[in-house]
Each structure stands twice: as structure tokens, then as C-alpha cells.
Write a protein that binds this DNA or RNA. Structure first.
Length: 673
DNA sequence: CGTACTTTAAACAGGT
DNA sequence: CACCTGTTTAAAGTAC
């Protein structure tokens, strides 16, 4: 509801992108109608304003203020980190030594924007190869640590908050607090999830290796005391899939309340910034930073470990080469991952990853802030230690982090970050979600992985309208949809399409009409649209080597879940000529190497069809071409008739096409998440 | 530079 | 008449 209003304002956004959008803006290729092309960058986003916070705290602080202060500190740490990143990246020579110190040297505004403004290319130009590598590692290590600390802080604060409220609550009717607590718990869980997801991603990319138990380590100290255990599952499940297994188990893990009174202690606790990094020079002379082993990898990794080495294999994104020992690994690292196009490409992708994470973080932080701010303002909320405090507006959103303007309107539904998709969702999900058949329908796999992400994040999906429409249609059992149903699918699946309706709907219609692959079939009840797969495939031939385009597309739509894919893409782009030659790709390898959504993204690999041993198996049965049997009765009359953007409250129930079947096994479950 | 592909915008025709 | 569906045309960007 409230969200609606915001949507209007954006109308002209298509090109402008925003926050995240900027990513897609430049890279998007076809995607974004990016107005100014890449040029727009630097000047455009002057939004980032950063006010030194904390000044607010004068003399004595009430608990509430304290909280805020802490939170701000945490945020600042995070922000500082960002700054460091930015400055570190932009100051060529001395990344190592100056890392922390140089943060200030970059004008804030620049720093704030840089993550998005600094194009990979620029980076490349600015940095020398070894620097790039070293930097990357360093930053990753840094980021991991800082993220962890940041989360920890946030969680502690949340805990404190909860405790506070709980106390207060004792004097109040329980229900009064119920909601708030729930909200907090939700936020809390979200944080956990986010953190876990980050770690997972990082881990997956070989950036860090840690034991599951450790991963959740920091979380376990979490304040759950105030939480009614029984609430949680529901919280997360929400109206989600009833049958959904315990994909949420993760979150519950943190429930043991060893947390106790992190309250006051948390304040004194944290050693935060500038973790002691141990530098160390590799044989090739490249300075390498070893992560200060906090909690993560210590296990299986010997002291002389390398961030990119673990479990006896190279953790370089997409590599996994086995190395018996560190020495061998280093050798491998220097030979295989020396500075070349491929490495830099991967580096670029990693940058995007980082940026994306930051954005995500910013969003969540902002939300949290808002929540806390809101609660603080409640006069009815008697503070155990002191009187209610009103938080100054300036104070409440100290984070200068560049968050997409839209974030305010972001749906409140728990956002399950994308990366999670592949990782944790898998565990819980039915067997049908096999990655193996992903390559059959790339877009779907992409979507599957990032479903949640696109659903909640206001990011333009890196797919063309045509491919999206096709996807929508293919997702249904009948492989046919009315226009309205297609609309609904768009809004349901992508937060991005919940606004600018006139624009994209027009585009959808346009595409339907324009592309031969979309066939309109008259039906009793009107007309439905189907996909003529052959036609669809036909129009791919325009060979796009897929490489660069692909990468860009991937990046533009970058989302955690795709990271791996992105890497692969980057890989393909720069130095796997053989991969680029369709001939070389057998489906098998293709699937494992390029699990991305090249569906529209250039379809480099797309084996093609002629009958496709590999291609859409699912499609084979029904003649997707002309004789689609038109469903007599669109069934979800109620749903598709609904004009309003179905957003906020996930009311998926209506939506869910029984998908199962054989087709895109991905959507089904999530539909309701 | 030309071509292909996308996206966005908009006009217009039929239907409801 | 307003709105929805579809169809077309045109312009502009991007990638190859």
C-alpha cells in the first residue's frame, strides 16, 4: 500500500537506475536502456552524503542513546570499511600500508559512490596487476571480518534492544510488545541469515573456509532469550510453503540463548577496526595478506594458510584445482591465477559481489535503524533505566551508505538474499531442484537461484523481456498465459516490475506482438499466449560469443546466487576460447561450467536445439509450437483479474501455478516463500 | 559503419 | 468513455 506511492516517482527511472541499478545501467547492454550509457556515472550519483555521526551523543547517554550510538558505530565501521575499500582501490601504489589510513583521503562523496562509480575497467587501469590480486584478497579478508563484526554488533544491539523491551514489557500487556518483538526477531533472523549467506557465498567462492559450526558461531551468542521459540519458525515460514521442509533450520540454530547479557558488555567488547593483517610475500613477490584468523578457518588450515587455499584445493573462484600443500598451491596460484584477462575479469566480478553485498547490508541496516528509531520514539515505552528518548532524525540514519532510493519502499517481507538460494534452499528443497538440468533453461536457473533476490530487491533482472515472458509462460503447466497472467508473473517475481507498470507492460505487449516466438492462441475465455520454442531458439543464432556480453549481463543483474556463474562467465570471457566455441561445449561441461542464465544473456552456450539432446527436455513432450492445447479455463480468474500490483503481502497462495511438473523446478517452491 | 537486438514511447484499432 | 489487448512504427542504445 504505502509502497505504491513511491512507485510513482520513479517513472522515469528506467534509465537512471538507482543504487543497484547503476550496475545494470552500464552493463546492461540491452537491458537498461541506460540513458547515458556508461558516461552518466560519475556525476550522476551525488546523492551520497555522509555525516559524521556520533556527534549526537553528548555527555550522558540514556540506554537508548547508547544503543543508537553503538549501532552507529557499527554502521560506521561498516561504512569505514567501504571507504577503505574505495580508497584502497583508488590509490594505486600503497594499498597495503595505507589501507586503513587512507580512508579519509577520499572525499566522502566520492568514496560513497566509488563502489558503483568505479568501473572495473577503471580499476584495472589504476591498479597494477599484482596489486589487484593482493588487494582483492586483502579486501575480502577484511570484508569478511568486518562483516562478521558488524553483524555481531548489530545482533548484540538487537539483543539489548530486546531485553530492554522485554523488561519494559513486563509491565505491559504482553501483546503490546508482541508485535515489536516479532519484528525484531525477524530482523534479527534476517541479519543472521544475511550473515550466514554472506559467509556461505564467500565460502563457496573459496574466499574463506570455515566450518559450519563456526559460521554460525557468532550467531549463537545471540540473544534469543526474549524470543519465544515457537514464534520463530512461523516467522520465517510465514505464509510460505506449508510443506517446505526445514530449510529454515539454519536460523533456528541460533536459538539457544547462551546469549545472556551481552548488553552492557557489548559496548566495551569489540575490537573492531583494522584487524591486524599479516602481510607476507609470496614467492613471486606479490604481497599477500593473510586473514587474521579469527574464528573461521582455523581448523583445517595451518598457520601458513592462504585465504585462497583450503581443503587441499585452490579456492580461487571457479578453480578448485587440487594442491597438495601450500607450496604447490602458491605455485599454482602464480601460474594459473597470475594477472591476466581472466583473473582481472574474475576480480571484477568479485568487486561486483562486494558491492552487492554492501548494498544489501546497507538496506538491512537501514531497515533496522528505522525499526529501532521507531521503537525508541514510542513514548509508551517506559525505559527501565531511563526515560524515553527521542532520536534526532539526523541521528537515525547516519549511514551514508548508498542505498537505493527505493529501499524505503522495499517490501517488508523477509528478504532472503539470493545466494542462499542455491546453498541453503537446496538442502530443504525437493529433489527436483537439481542443478543438473539447469542448463536446459538457463534463465530459469538464474531465476531459481536468485528468485528471492529479484523478488525483493529492486533490481532489474538481467533478462530481456522476451526471455522473461517465455519463462513466465513455460513455468505454467499449460505453458500458456493470458496477458494479465504474464503481468502478474512479472510483478510477482520481480520487485523491479512493481513499478513503472505502464512502461514495462507496454514493453511486454510489444514483445509479445513483435516476436514470432510468442503465439497467441484464442481461447474460449479470451486469448492466451504460448511460446513457440523453435522460433525462440531460432532467433538466437545471432551469434553472440556470449562472453563479454554475458559477463555484463551477469554483472548487471548481479546477485549473490549468480556469483559463481559470474565467475564462470568472466572466466569464459577472457581466457577460455574453447569455451566460447560452441562446438567445444558439450552439455555436460556446459552445465558445470556455465550454469548461468545465458538465456538471453547472450546464450553463448546454448547448444541448440535442433532437437536438443540437451535442450529443453521438458519442452519436448508437448509440441510447444502451434498445437498447444488451450486451457479451457484460465482457472485463476481471481488472480489475474487483480489489477493492483500484488506486492507487499506475499499472497502467493493465489499465484502459485502448480508448476511442479517437469518444468522449471525452481519456481515452484519459492513461489510462496 | 552497418546490422541485429532491445527497450521505450506512442499511436491506433477492437473489445469490454 | 475508460480501460484492456494487440499491433505497429519510430527512435535510441548497445553489441558485434
Amino acid at each position: 500500500m504505502m509502497v505504491e506511492s513511491a512507485s510513482e516517482t520513479i517513472r522515469s527511472a528506467p534509465s537512471g537506475q538507482n543504487g543497484v541499478g547503476s550496475l545494470s545501467g552500464q552493463a546492461d547492454g540491452g537491458g537498461g536502456g541506460s540513458s547515458g550509457g556508461g558516461a552518466a556515472g560519475p556525476a550522476a550519483g551525488g546523492a551520497g552524503r555522509d555525516s559524521a555521526v556520533g556527534a549526537d551523543s553528548n555527555g550522558e547517554m540514556s540506554p537508548a542513546e547508547l544503543l543508537h550510538f553503538q549501532q552507529q558505530q557499527a554502521l560506521q565501521v561498516a561504512r569505514q570499511f567501504l571507504l577503505q575499500q574505495a580508497s584502497g582501490l583508488s590509490s594505486p601504489g600503497n594499498n597495503d600500508s595505507k589501507q586503513s589510513a587512507s580512508a579519509v583521503q577520499v572525499p566522502v562523496s566520492v568514496a560513497m559512490m566509488s563502489p558503483q562509480m568505479l568501473t572495473p575497467q577503471q580499476m584495472q587501469q589504476i591498479l597494477s596487476p599484482p596489486q589487484l590480486q593482493a588487494l582483492l584478497q586483502q579486501q575480502q579478508a577484511l570484508m569478511i571480518q568486518q562483516l562478521q563484526e558488524y553483524y555481531k554488533k548489530q545482533q548484540e544491539q538487537l539483543h539489548l534492544q530486546l531485553l530492554t523491551q522485554q523488561q519494559a514489557g513486563k509491565q505491559q500487556p504482553k501483546e503490546a510488545l508482541g508485535n515489536k518483538q516479532l519484528a525484531f526477531q525477524q530482523q534479527l533472523l534476517q541479519m543472521q541469515q544475511l550473515q550466514q549467506q554472506h559467509l556461505l557465498n564467500l565460502q563457496r567462492q573459496g574466499l574463506v573456509s570455515l566450518q559450519p559450526s563456526q559460521a554460525s558461531g557468532p550467531l549463537q551468542t545471540l540473544p534469543q532469550a526474549a524470543v519465544c521459540p515457537t514464534d520463530l519458525p512461523q516467522l520465517w515460514k510465514g505464509e510460505g510453503a506449508p510443506g517446505q521442509p526445514a530449510e529454515d533450520s539454519v536460523k533456528q540454530e541460533g536459538l539457544d540463548l547462551t546469549g545472556t547479557a551481552t548488553t552492557a558488555t557489548s559496548f566495551a567488547a569489540p575490537p573492531k577496526v583494522s584487524p591486524p593483517l599479516s602481510h607476507h610475500t609470496l614467492p613471486n613477490g606479490q604481497p599477500t595478506v593473510l586473514t587474521p584468523r579469527r574464528d573461521s578457518s582455523s581448523h583445517e588450515e595451518t598457520p601458513g594458510s592462504h585465504p585462497l587455499y583450503g581443503h587441499g584445493e585452490c579456492k580461487w573462484p571457479g578453480c578448485e584445482t587440487l594442491c597438495e600443500d601450500l607450496g604447490q598451491f602458491i605455485k599454482h596460484l602464480n601460474t594459473e591465477h597470475a594477472l591476466d584477462d581472466r583473473s582481472t575479469a574474475q576480480c571484477r566480478v568479485q568487486m561486483q559481489v562486494v558491492q552487492q553485498l554492501e548494498i544489501q547490508l546497507a538496506k538491512e541496516s537501514e531497515r533496522l535503524q528505522a525499526m529501532m528509531t521507531h521503537l525508541h520514539m514510542r513514548p509508551s515505552e517506559p525505559k527501565p533505566f531511563s526515560q524515553p528518548v527521542t532520536v534526532s532524525a539526523a541521528d537515525s540514519f547516519p549511514d551514508g551508505l548508498a542505498h537505493p532510493p527505493t529501499s524505503a519502499a522495499a517490501p517488508v517481507t523477509p528478504l532472503r538474499p539470493p545466494g542462499l538460494g542455491s546453498a541453503s534452499l537446496h538442502s530443504g528443497g525437493p529433489a527436483r531442484r537439481r542443478s543438473s538440468d539447469k542448463f536446459c533453461s538457463p534463465i530459469s536457473s538464474e531465476l531459481a537461484q536468485n528468485h528471492e533476490f529479484y523478488k525483493n530487491a529492486d533490481v532489474r533482472p538481467p533478462f530481456t523481456y522476451a526471455s522473461l515472458i517465455r519463462q513466465a509462460i513455460l513455468e505454467t503447466p499449460d505453458r500458456q498465459l493470458t496477458l494479465n497472467e504474464i503481468y502478474n508473473w512479472f510483478t510477482r517475481m520481480f520487485a523491479y516490475f512493481r513499478r513503472n507498470t505502464a512502461t514495462w507492460k507496454n514493453a511486454v505487449r510489444h514483445n509479445l506482438s513483435l516476436h514470432k516466438c510468442f503465439v497467441r492462441v484464442e481461447n474460449v475465455k479470451g486469448a492466451v499466449w504460448t511460446v513457440d520454442e523453435r522460433e525462440y531458439q531460432k532467433r538466437r543464432p545471432p551469434k553472440m560469443t556470449g562472453s563479454p556480453t554475458l559477463v555484463k549481463n551477469m554483472i548487471s543483474g548481479l546477485s549473490y546466487g549468480t556469483l559463481n556463474a559470474s565467475y564462470q562467465a568472466a572466466l569464459a570471457e577472457s581466457s577460455f576460447p574453447l569455451l566460447n566455441s560452441p562446438g567445444m561445449l558439450n552439455p555436460g561441461s556446459a552445465s558445470s561450467l556455465l550454469p548461468l542464465g545465458h538465456d538471453d544473456a547472450g546464450a553463448p552456450v546454448e547448444p541448440l536445439p535442433s532437437n536438443g539432446s540437451s535442450s529443453p527436455p521438458r519442452l519436448s513432450p508437448p509440441q510447444y509450437s502451434h498445437q498447444v492445447q488451450v486451457k479451457e479455463e484460465p482457472a485463476e480468474a481471481e488472480e489475474d483479474r487483480r489489477p493492483g500490483p500484488p506486492m507487499g503481502p506475499p499472497n502467493p497462495s493465489t499465484a502459485g501455478p502448480p508448476e511442479d511438473r517437469d518444468l522449471e523446478e525452481e519456481l515452484p517452491g519459492e513461489e510462496l516463500s
